[in-house]
Computed example of a mutant assay.
Amino acid sequence: MATTTTGPIQSPISVFTDIGAYRTWRAEQRTAGIRVGYVPTMGALHAGHTDLVRASLAANDKTVVTIFVNPAQFAPHEDFASYPRTLSSDLATLESLAPPESLAVVVPQVRDMYPSGITQDVAQQKGTFVSVDGFAHQMEGAARPTFFRGVATVVTKLFNLVQPDNAYFGQKDIQQALLLRRMVGDLLMTYPTPRTLHIIPTTRDTTTGLALSSRNAYLSEKERDFAPTLVSALRAGSTAAAPLATARGLVEERVRQAEEQGVHMRLDYVSLNDPDTFDSLTDEQYAALRDAELTDGPGKPIIFSGALWVGKTRLIDNLILGDTSSIIY
């Protein structure tokens, strides 16, 4: 049983809720030459998270998992209060993956992460925050304008705390992962570096292709039938001459079918974006880029992504068109 500052937590895994206690442990690992991998989560663990943990376990001596529902990345109208918090089952999931000595779990307290306090109203926030200017207003940033500020801030804090030799993020949140890779380079971080911040392919439902997400738990039984609409549209668009038009057309058709079944769906966006700048491409620009590759050789990969409301649940997904080797490693 791991004892923490908030009382006993029934787990053979070392669980830290006290930052000082974790730092002592981390210093001991470094002195012993132990390589530490890191998987940041907000809990409600699913197979996508466990795939990240397995990737870390395979490449490192020990793996640290943080579980922290970060208030700074939720806008006032978003689902911070209702976001699933399932620490006991999360620990049981992690216990099933590896011997307990291979893992450590950090459950930071809000008061330690935000010593000046925190509110979801950005205008009222006090303290130090991190922004990645010029790369956080496109794609997801257009729909959630304060989201990446909250993500960059909390991940900077968590990297400073955990000091990982390697960190692991999922492709499902591709803009977030690439933005953080840029951030650690810009801030000259040592733990991790851009090269040791790894992006792992999206884990999907093997039958429907739906990207696994903690928010999938919000879907009703009827809504689940329509939840794979976005990935189906992206897949159809990925092989078409006009990816955006093809994907939007497929979504529009499924929206009509859903309405007949009493399910409301709404497309937030579908977008083609440069993975370095996040600049948007039109279908025509994408076609010209691919035509040029026929004579000039393979070009850079392109992110094909979207967001779709299914009922009250917002689902995101993406595919990487072209050579993924400069992104997925």
Rank of each mutant, 00 (worst) to 15 (best):
A287G: 02
R54V: 11
R195G: 05
G262C: 03
P115M: 03
T246A: 13
A59K: 12
N166K: 14
A27C: 05
V53W: 03
Y218N: 02
G322C: 11
A98V: 11
F16D: 05
Q285I: 02
G237K: 10
V154T: 05
T206W: 02
A32L: 02
H264Q: 11
K222N: 11
S82Y: 07
P84F: 04
V105C: 04
Y269M: 12
F147A: 04
K172P: 08
S280A: 14
G127Q: 14
R182D: 13
M113P: 13
T229S: 15
P100N: 05
R248L: 10
S214T: 14
A142C: 10
M113L: 15
H46S: 01
S326M: 06
G262V: 08
G48E: 08
P298C: 03
I118W: 12
L187F: 15
I327T: 06
T24M: 07
V154M: 08
P76H: 09
D90R: 01
P108Q: 09
R26P: 05
G134N: 03
V65G: 07
Q138E: 14
I302Y: 13
L244A: 04
A307I: 03
G7S: 06
W25N: 06
G306C: 13
G20P: 01
L161Q: 02
V251W: 09
A72W: 12
V122P: 01
S116P: 00
G37M: 07
Y329F: 12
G209M: 09
G150R: 10
T5F: 09
E253K: 13
N160I: 09
D133M: 14
F304R: 08
P194V: 03
N60G: 04
T208D: 07
T50R: 04
V231K: 08
A143V: 14
G43D: 05
D296H: 14
E284R: 14
Y22L: 14
V110S: 03
F169R: 06
A98M: 08
F226N: 04
P100M: 10
L244R: 02
G209P: 04
P192W: 00
I328P: 01
I328W: 00
P164D: 12
E223M: 03
K157S: 12
S102M: 03
L289P: 00
L210C: 09
I174S: 05
R314D: 05
P164Y: 12
D121A: 07
Q109C: 11
P145C: 01
A233L: 12
F147H: 15
N70E: 01
E101Q: 14
S326Y: 01
A27S: 14
R23I: 07
E293Q: 15
I9T: 13
S214G: 03
L267T: 07
A142W: 13
I328Q: 01
Q120G: 07
L219I: 07
T50I: 11
S326Q: 10
F135G: 00
V122N: 00
G262D: 05
E260R: 13
F74H: 04
S89Q: 13
N318W: 09
T6W: 08
L219D: 01
S325T: 15
N160C: 11
A236M: 13
M1R: 10
L161C: 03
R54I: 10
L94D: 08
D323F: 04
A32C: 01
A75T: 02
V65A: 11
S102Y: 00
R256K: 15
E293Y: 09
T24C: 07
L57Q: 09
E101I: 08
